[in-house]
C-alpha cells in the first residue's frame, strides 16, 4: 500500500479514506461516498484514469469541451491544490465542501476572493474586474458599451474600494459581500445537501458501516 511503490502505479485510483475527508469537511461519510459517485462519472468522461482533468471539468460544467472559460479555468486551478493539473477525489471533495450550504461563510468569502483575484496578487484590480466583466458579457451575448462598463466599474470601486487605492483587498471584499450577500449566491450549491439521494448507489460501494 506504500504510496511510492512503483509496482502499484497502474493500480486504479483508490478512494481516499472517506472518514478522513468527512472529518476535514462538512460532509458526512455517506455524503463523501455519494460525492464519489459524481466524481467517478466526471473523471471517466474523457480518460478513465480516476482523475479529473481540465477537459473533463469543462465538459461537466458546460456539457461541451469546446467552450473555454476563464472562470472554469480559475475554479479548476483553485480546486487543484496540489497544482498538478488534475483533481483527485480528495481535492474535489474538499473544494466542494466550501460550496455546501452549511460551510462557514468565511470560507466562501475567501474562496470567492481568490476566484476573482485572477492574477493572484492578493487584491482584485480594476483591470481584472473589467476582464471578468467582458468575459461574462461575451458569454451571455450581452452587449454593453465601453462607457457603460467603465461606469459600472467606477461605481463598484466607489463602493468597494474604501481605502481608495484602486484595489479591492480581502477586507474590502469581505465588507462588500456582507453588504451584498447575493454576490456569494454561486458559492452555495443546494445540490450538496441532497447528494446521498441524488447518488443513492453509493450504498453498494460503501466501505463503512452505518452508525
Amino acid at each position: 500500500l506504500g504510496c511510492c511503490d512503483t509496482k502499484n502505479r497502474k493500480t486504479p485510483y483508490r478512494l481516499e479514506n472517506p472518514e478522513i475527508i468527512a472529518s476535514e469537511t462538512v460532509f458526512s461519510v455517506s455524503e463523501v461516498e455519494a460525492l464519489y459517485e459524481l466524481y467517478k462519472k466526471i473523471s471517466s468522461a474523457v480518460v478513465d484514469d480516476g482523475l479529473i482533468n481540465k477537459e473533463e471539468f469543462q465538459l461537466a460544467l458546460f456539457k461541451t469541451n469546446k467552450k473555454e472559460s476563464i472562470f472554469a479555468e480559475r475554479v479548476f486551478n483553485l480546486f487543484d491544490t496540489k497544482n498538478n493539473g488534475v483533481l483527485d477525489f480528495g481535492e474535489f471533495a474538499r473544494a466542494l465542501s466550501i460550496f455546501h450550504p452549511d460551510a462557514p461563510l468565511n470560507e466562501k468569502i475567501d474562496f470567492s476572493f481568490r476566484l476573482y483575484d485572477l492574477k493572484q496578487q492578493g487584491y482584485i484590480g480594476r483591470e481584472e474586474v473589467k476582464h471578468m466583466m467582458l468575459a461574462t458579457l461575451a458569454e451571455s451575448g450581452m452587449n454593453l458599451s465601453d462607457e457603460v462598463i467603465e461606469n459600472i466599474i467606477d461605481k463598484t470601486f466607489e463602493e468597494a474600494d474604501t481605502k481608495h487605492d484602486g484595489r479591492i483587498d480581502k477586507d474590502e471584499w469581505e465588507s462588500l459581500v456582507l453588504q451584498h450577500p447575493s454576490l456569494l449566491k454561486n458559492m452555495t450549491l443546494q445540490y450538496l445537501r441532497d447528494i446521498t439521494t441524488t447518488f443513492p448507489s453509493f450504498v453498494f460501494y460503501s466501505q463503512v458501516e452505518d452508525t
Partner: peptide, 26 residues
C-alpha cells in the same frame, strides 16, 4: 441611501463558468 446600481461583481457572478450546479446536472 445609495442609488441602486448594478455592481460589477453581480454581473460577473452570473457567469456560467461560476455556476457549479451544472456539475450535478446530467
Amino acid at each position: 441611501t445609495k442609488p441602486v446600481t448594478m455592481n460589477a461583481f453581480e454581473l460577473i457572478s452570473r457567469s456560467q463558468g461560476l455556476n457549479l450546479s451544472n456539475l450535478f446536472e446530467k
